[in-house]
Design a protein around this nucleic acid. Structure first.
Lengths: 344, 344
DNA sequence: CAAGCAAATGGTAGCGCTGTCATGATAGCG
DNA sequence: CGCTATCATGACAGCGCTACCATTTGCTTG
């Protein structure tokens, strides 16, 4: 008769974690009031709020954000997708993003594509599945599937690093112009045999854009614009190695325009080890404005890109947008600065 | 009469996102079979699996991971907490973690404490709220509340960077021994006036541990072990600045043992700019084994710590544990290597 | 040929929380 | 003093998915 006694209830609670209902009960209010006390403190009486907070403290309640997100379909999670973590440039942008976003109570979900657009698509799919509040990705290029997915997504998308026609928000700088700027500097200095050295330009296509700018200026001055493309990723070692390669391949080289400061500094230090005079025998220029460039002798001529600032600005724009405010600008150019050192 | 017509149903579906039920319907199976087709493909017939995958593709279904996590209380999210992103050391560990974890389908939730243990506690609270599968944090020191929270948490905890009695799993190296190692090297080389230079040792307490090892060796050799503590964070610039400070404060200094390579390289480059001979006038040693140290002349004597390897190993141990397997070791010493350069 | 077993599938009931609406309590006003 | 605005609170339902158990089907085996 008592065979199917209802007390033998199924228990699925996996852990003994304290729930909001328990907090509510301990505080003598309904669960929904407890919820409000924590998330909309101004919509609850002082006494209710106090007793809820006291119960939270006493029971050691930790809100289940997964449940909250499901119910509200808002997650306070922000997806950040970068192509590399080895390259300090992206880390600095992340730094800027993080300090701003964390201050506003957002968490970062980090993804690394290793410069692979298919991998980016996979990451985007996963991140959309987490109902992220927004997505930040490095670059304006995506594969078709990724583009479609993002175009139909109804949350802010921020594309950083480069400047151009983006899907939604965009904070970056004009890499073609940066390439032009440095090439112009080298030409002005009187160099005529100038080699551009980059690493994996198909992947690091922003370095390729800088080369385009570089090439345009040289062509306009009636100068050839030879390119040496390395197959390894940019690093001090790669820069050091590339120096010999360039000098063998183009013996008359007067100046080398490197795609970034790691390569440039590596080459500069290697040149010195080999007894070459910089810039007398060979002039060297970089891109990024890493601190290292200011500590070598002579100082490295480079283009300073405001990376942390770019991250902070992107985060602020995003927060403004998430707050429902009109966006100040859909596109923001953070610019760059030519930093002339003794190396040219 | 038709005033309260039941068709006027409350609609809370926020977006028009495709759900698993819709996929199931399109595939002609029940929702649960669709779920299995995606998450446990081997528990479903080939035909069912095929039609579900086809429907997924056709409808552009993106799984709602929030809902899945709530239902299963498993999230495939792994919290990673580091004290800093400026310091490349942590980034390299993250790199190692990420490449291993992403390959296993885990996502990283990144938190940055800025060397503040209260901030760490806040981050841990948040991350526990996301039902993370595991938590990785840099260091063995936590504040009381954080310790309590973690001790009662029933998921793996991995403490990296340093070696010692941790809460659960631990992968790192012995910083006191590393300090001893370098100090021993300097003493062996015949230096007697040796200054240790670190930045904010209360925060970067692992550098403090290295100083302890350093001090012990010097004391054992009857040598004083003066300490110069910088108030800024470690950087090339700070290293450069510290050189003058050390030489003013301790004019007889023969060797400087820096807490890390950034400081050491900054000082080395500064010494050269000032026409000081390294190691003739002043010997310089660092810690970490950053690439930069191998590109300056003379090469920097340093201690190589396997940072990416540490991340990879930590991730592998964690994955093993999450797979329910017995843990190979609760504690794993990744060791370090003295790298002798010309700078000492 | 009935019994026994594994594989494939489905029904039900939540996971813990919050949006929506309804209600009761309090204040404001002519 | 009765009626409406405002505030605080609560009941209810459901976010989209999966654990659990039950059922069905197809096949082996004594």
């Amino acid at each position: 008769m008592s065979k199917d006694f209802p007390a033998a209830v199924k228990q699925r609670r996996s852990s003994d974690q304290v729930t909001l209902s328990q907090v509510a009960q301990a505080a003598g209010v309904s669960p929904i009031t407890a919820s409000r006390a924590l998330n909309h403190p101004d919509k609850v009486s002082d006494s209710a709020r106090r007793s809820v907070l006291e119960a939270v403290e006493r029971l050691g309640y930790v809100p289940n954000l997964v449940a909250g997100s499901l119910a509200s379909s808002r997650s306070r999670l922000i997806a950040v997708i970068v192509p590399s973590l080895i390259n300090t440039v992206f880390v600095e942008v992340i730094k800027g993003l993080q300090e701003t976003l964390e201050a506003e109570g957002y968490q970062i979900l980090l993804g690394n594509t290793d410069y692979d657009l298919d991998r980016e698509y996979q990451l985007v799919r996963t991140f959309l599945g987490w109902s992220c509040s927004a997505l930040i990705t490095a670059g304006l290029r995506h594969n078709k599937a990724c583009h479609t997915l993002l175009a139909n997504w109804d949350h802010p998308i921020m594309e950083v690093m480069e400047l151009g026609k983006g899907m939604d928000l965009n904070v970056g700088l004009d890499h073609v112009a940066a390439g032009r700027c440095m090439a112009g500097h080298l030409v002005d200095k009187g160099y005529r045999h100038i080699v551009y050295v980059g690493a994996r330009l198909a992947q690091d296509y922003r370095a390729g854009m800088r080369y385009e700018g570089h090439k345009a200026v040289l062509k306009a001055n009636g100068i050839e614009a030879p390119l040496v493309e390395l197959t390894t990723l940019g690093s001090l070692q790669a820069g050091a190695d590339s120096l010999a390669q360039v000098l063998t391949q183009y013996p008359h080289t007067q100046a080398i325009h490197f795609a970034n400061d790691d390569l440039a500094a590596g080459a500069l230090l290697a040149a010195q080890r080999q007894g070459l005079n910089v810039p007398g025998d060979i002039a060297i220029a970089g891109f990024n404005g890493l601190p290292l460039g200011q500590h070598v002798t002579p100082r490295l001529t480079t283009i300073l890109s405001p990376r942390e600032e770019m991250g902070r600005l992107a985060a602020k724009e995003l927060i403004r947008r998430l707050g429902g405010k009109n966006v100040y600008r859909r596109q923001h150019d953070v610019g760059f600065t030519l930093q002339t050192g003794g190396s040219t």
